[in-house]
Simulated scan of single mutants.
Amino acid sequence: MKEKIAIIHALFDEIGGGEKLALSAIDALVNGGYDVKVYTGTKVDQEKIKNILGYSLKNDDIIHIKSKLSIFLANITGNKAVRLRRLMIYRKLFNKEFLNKLRDNYDLIIDTQSNLPTPTDITYIHFPATIGTTNKRNFIEKLYDDIVSLASKGLTKTRPGRTLTNSKWTANKIYKEFGIIADILYPPVDLDYFSKVSYGSHNNKKIITISRFSPEKGLDKIVDIAKQLKEFDFYIVGATTPVLSDKVINTIKNKIKNENVKNVFLMPDLPRNELLKIMEESKIYLHPPFAEHFGISIVEAMASGLVPVVYKDGGGWYDIVSNIDKNLGYKEINEAANSIKYAYEKYDSLKQLSINISKKFSREEFKLNILKMVNYALEIKQLEMR
C-alpha cells in the first residue's frame, strides 16, 4: 500500500517560484511511489500551469479548503493581502480537529507556503511571513505586518519536525526570526528545457527580465535602467495575478509613455516556448532591484546561456551570482547599467561559467534530495511500528 502524503499550499492564484517548487515536489513524490493529495484554498488553473511549467496536477488529487475570511480579503483588496489570506486558510487547516484528521489520514504532512514553522512534519519556508517584503514600510504596511504577526501566533506554538528553505540568505532570516537553523533544499530548475538554447545565437542586444508582475518586485526600475542603455532592448516577461498585476503593468506602461522610452517591451503570461525564443536571442538577464529569496528565473537564464545581472542582496546574489563574478551585482541604477556593459563585454567567458554553476540547481538534484528527506522523515516516524 502506498504511503500517503498531504501537501498544503494555500494559494494557487499566482504561479511563481513557490508554486514551481510545490508542483515539482508533488511530481517527485508521485513518481517516487507516494499517494499525494494537495490541500489548497483557491482554484488551480491547470492550463496556465501547463503553459508555464510544462505539466499540471490531476484534479482528483486536489482538495479545496474554503476560508470565507480569505475570500473576503481577496475581494476587498483585489487579491492583495497575500500573507494574511494564506494564514486564514492555514488557521482553518491547523485547528486541532482538522489537524488531527490530517494526521490520522496521512503518513506525512508537508507545508509548502505558510512561511511559518507550522505544526507539520516538514515545512518549507520561502521567506518568513512575519517579515515585510520591503524595507520602506509606511504606517499601513507596518499595521499590516502587525496583523500578520498576530494571526501567525497560533500556528507557531508547535515547531515542525523539519524546516527547509531555499538559500543560505533566507536561512539567516529564519534563524533571526524564529531561532531555527533550517536545512537548504534549493528549488528545482528545469535545466533540460532551458539548456536547449544555451549554445544558440545569442547575438542580439536583447536583455530579458523574468518576474511576477507584483508591486514588491520594483519592475518599473527596469525602465530607468533602459533609459541609460538605449542601444539595448529590454523585455519584461512574467506571470500575472488578476487585478494585482494590472496596476503594476499600467504603472510601467505609463512610465514608458510619459518618459518616451522606446526600448522596453512587456510580455505578461508568455508561453514558455516563446520565452525560450527570446532567451535564445539574448545575452543578458537582468533581475529587478529586489532581494530575491532564491530566484529560479535567474538560474533558468543561466542555463539558457545568458549572463545574469542581479540586485546585490538576497539568495539570488549570495547563493548564485556572486559565485560567477562580483561585478554582476548592483545596488543603484547606475551600477546596473555598468554591470550590464561589463557582462556584455565579457559575455563569452562569463557564459560558460554561468552554465556550469546552474547545474547544481537541476530538477534531478531536487528530486533526489526531497525524496531522501521524505524517506528519512517517514523512517523516523514509523520506526517503532516496524
Rank of each mutant, 00 (worst) to 15 (best):
R162Y: 06
M267V: 13
L143D: 00
I125C: 12
G154L: 04
N75T: 10
P128W: 03
G218H: 03
E47F: 09
N203Y: 03
I110A: 08
K205F: 00
A336V: 08
P242S: 02
D45A: 11
K196Y: 05
L73S: 06
L353S: 11
G154T: 07
F127Q: 13
I207S: 01
R85L: 11
F290L: 10
I333R: 02
K227W: 06
P288Q: 09
H126M: 10
T156N: 00
I26Y: 10
K136N: 15
T251G: 00
K381V: 09
N250C: 06
E384V: 13
G218N: 06
Y193K: 01
S201G: 01
E177M: 10
S349C: 09
G16R: 01
A151M: 04
V307H: 02
M88D: 02
N51R: 15
K176Q: 14
I109L: 13
I62L: 12
N172P: 00
T241S: 09
F12T: 02
I140F: 15
I324Q: 00
G154S: 14
Y106Q: 06
N203S: 12
L286A: 04
F72I: 10
F127I: 10
F290V: 09
R159K: 15
Y347N: 08
A171W: 07
S149T: 10
T130W: 01
L21E: 10
K48M: 11
A377K: 15
F194R: 01
H293T: 15
S349A: 10
Y199D: 15
G295H: 08
Q113T: 10
I71S: 12
I52A: 12
K247C: 05
K2R: 14
R212D: 08
L164S: 05
L328M: 00
S322D: 04
I249G: 05
A377P: 00
Y124N: 07
S198A: 15
L266R: 00
Y285L: 06
L23P: 04
I5D: 00
H64L: 14
I249P: 04
A74Y: 03
Y90S: 04
D220I: 13
R363T: 05
M1S: 12
T130S: 09
G329K: 01
